[in-house]
């Protein structure tokens, strides 16, 4: 059953990529840093260089945290939909295979938040 209805019924998804004016959604979560209460949602053009997210966008989002400045980016582990994944910083989102509403998580080994509380 796709929906309980009195007759044939199909819903129109409200969040198709065509509604975002040339952007697509990307969700990013920083593991073990729950000071940021939930993963973040960003609208990015698919032509954006992946490295620009890390270098130009995320510092504004996560820079408040004392761990941010300590991140060794050569050791960061990425997950896409929960599976290990390797980004190419010099390629675009599309070239990295990132589609609308994909979810990324990054782990920063050795950094576990305020007093090790994963905050």
């Amino acid at each position: 059953m796709q929906v309980a209805a009195v007759k044939e019924y199909a819903g129109t998804p409200r969040d198709g990529v065509e509604n975002f004016h040339g952007n697509q959604l990307l969700y990013i979560g920083w593991d073990d840093h729950l000071m940021f209460c939930a993963p973040l949602a960003f609208p990015f053009p698919p032509t954006l260089r992946f490295g620009d997210i890390v270098e130009k966008v995320l510092p504004g989002a996560y820079g408040y945290h004392p761990d941010w400045a300590r991140i060794d980016w050569s050791k960061v582990e990425w997950l896409k939909s929960g599976q290990p994944w390797t980004p190419h910083f010099n390629r675009t989102l599309a070239e990295n295979g990132l589609g609308h509403k994909d979810v990324l998580r990054f782990r920063t080994p050795g950094l576990t938040g305020i007093q090790g509380s994963c905050s």
Partner: peptide, 29 residues
Amino acid sequence: SKYHFCSDHCQHIFDNEPEKYVQAWLPVH
């Protein structure tokens, strides 16, 4: 399309009636 959930239970609710919940008016989006 991809849909995301906070829990197994919220996902099951979606799975039972996807045509209803694809229409969700999510404020962030």
